[in-house]
């Protein structure tokens, strides 16, 4: 399974995004606000989910800004960190 697909499934399951399927999430859509529609509390859970499920720690705000831009950005961030 493509990594992005797995990432989307994990987010849908863990964030309990009702009535949303992986194919509904655009790879380049913003994760907060108008895109996926996540809010500040979802973001807290997102940080923990990335740690728990992918073993990647987001250490500072700059990394967070980069990683949480979109599914594309988060996928690239996780894969890059796992290779290090």
């Amino acid at each position: 399974m493509e990594f992005k697909q797995k990432l989307k499934q994990t987010l849908i399951r863990e964030l309990n995004l009702e009535d949303i399927h992986p194919e509904d999430i655009q790879d380049d859509a913003p994760m907060f606000g108008d895109g996926l529609g996540l809010d500040s509390l979802d973001a807290v859970e997102l940080v923990v989910i990335v740690q728990k499920h992918f073993g990647v720690e987001i250490k500072d705000m700059e990394e967070g800004q980069t990683a949480f831009q979109s599914i594309n950005a988060l996928s690239a961030f996780i894969q890059e960190r796992k290779q290090q």
Binding site: M31, F32, G33, D39, S40, A43, V44, L46, V47, V48, I58, K59, D60, M61, E63, G64, Q65, A67, F68
Partner: peptide
């Protein structure tokens, strides 16, 4: 500031 996303989330968890 909770509205400063996603930086606020990273700060809280950290």
């Amino acid at each position: 500031d909770p509205d400063n996303l996603p930086a606020s989330a990273v700060e809280i968890v950290g």
